[in-house]
């Protein structure tokens, strides 16, 4: 196949040797073990403390942190985003975090407000 000069082909850039592959496979198995352990820890925490009111807040934030930890490993290692150029990582992640960060902030703070006055509002309208 002749190379076309109007298309720039990067598909071959990711080819690698046997040794490099071995190193990568090791990393994948390590991440699998790590993610499984984190999931087991999460479920165990839920089983032990989910009905304990005093642990509620701690549990909530530790679940969110552990989830972001898992998500980071999936995107950076499994999806190879960590191997892409920094500028591309920014293109993918920055719009997401800016827009969704705002959405989460505005929706959850509104929800708490609406929830706080829900009984009074429903009472007023006779719902």
């Amino acid at each position: 196949m002749d190379a076309r000069d109007d298309i720039y082909e990067y598909s071959l850039d990711t080819h690698h040797s046997e040794e490099a592959g071995q190193k990568m496979r090791k990393k994948f198995y390590f991440v699998l073990a790590l993610l499984s352990v984190v999931t087991i820890i999460e479920v165990a925490m839920g089983m032990i403390w989910s009905r304990d009111e005093s642990m509620k807040e701690i549990l909530k934030y530790s679940f969110i942190i552990l989830t972001l930890f898992k998500a980071g490993y999936i995107t950076m290692v499994f999806m190879h985003l960590g191997d892409e150029k920094k500028s591309f990582q920014t293109v993918v992640l920055a719009p997401y975090f800016i827009l969704i960060g705002y959405l989460i902030f505005i929706c959850l703070s509104e929800a708490l407000y609406v929830g706080e006055f829900r009984p009074a509002v429903e009472n007023y309208f006779g719902l």
Partner: peptide, 22 residues
């Protein structure tokens, strides 16, 4: 990324209702 927006929207809506009826 666009699909992630969709899922985030759904999960945030869930979060909204969950906080409202906490």
């Amino acid at each position: 990324v666009s699909d992630a927006f969709t899922f985030s929207g759904l999960l945030t809506a869930y979060g909204f209702m969950r906080h409202k009826y906490e």
